[in-house]
Amino acid sequence: MPDPTVTIPRGGRVRLRINSRSGRILVTAEERGDIVVERGDARVSTGEDGQVLLEAHGAVEVRCPEGTDILCGAISSRVEVRGRAGSVSVSTASGHIEVEEAFAADLRSISGSIEIKRCGEGGCRMSSKSGRLSAERTMKAELSTVSGRMEIAEAAGPIRLKTVSGNIEARLSGAFDASASTISGGVTLTFPAAVHPRTRFRTMSGRQRLDLAPGQDCEVNVSTLSGKLEVVGA
């Protein structure tokens, strides 16, 4: 069996690719200079440009340097990224995805829920068919679901949100452009009370509510066929 520890060349770009069809995948990004497979049956190899490829069978636990870019493909695995990662891309069919902190994130699941605590300047993109999406703190963000609900506790950048029948709740920390669209789900966007957005509501039959004074601070577009639309002040 190959040595499951890979020493990262000094100054090398650290990019970790993980494939595993099932079983929990746990990646911890922390202060260290190597990549270690702590648990699980995994084949590790180094590729072009210092990239590390990890093919796992079943559950696997990996430790890698802070700021590592992580690209992970799974089917039913639960994927967790702890610590401070670089750009994180994860796709699963049914597994839950949980990321503690990333510079940028692209997280996709068909039926699993997706959660990110902090996403940096690279922005956050999340997509699920039926799973719930949630971000505690993010800069720019782009989220989409079919039926899953989405929540952003604090967006410090422009957001674009789209869902067919899920509900949208997002709280923005300043005057950032926002677009939220649903077919039948409801939308609640919350801005600081001092923000005066230019708001455009589009609806066929949904209720709408704006309780911020209109202005030119930012562009807010909200639309639905039948859900309720709210743009409110905190």
Binding site: N19, R21, C72, G73, A74, I75, S89, A93, R108
Partner: peptide, 15 residues
């Protein structure tokens, strides 16, 4: 072009 990584898909043997 932004890489999304290795994606495993049902019925397709390789990522």
């Amino acid at each position: 072009f932004e890489e999304l990584g290795p994606v495993l898909m049902k019925g397709i043997p390789d990522p």
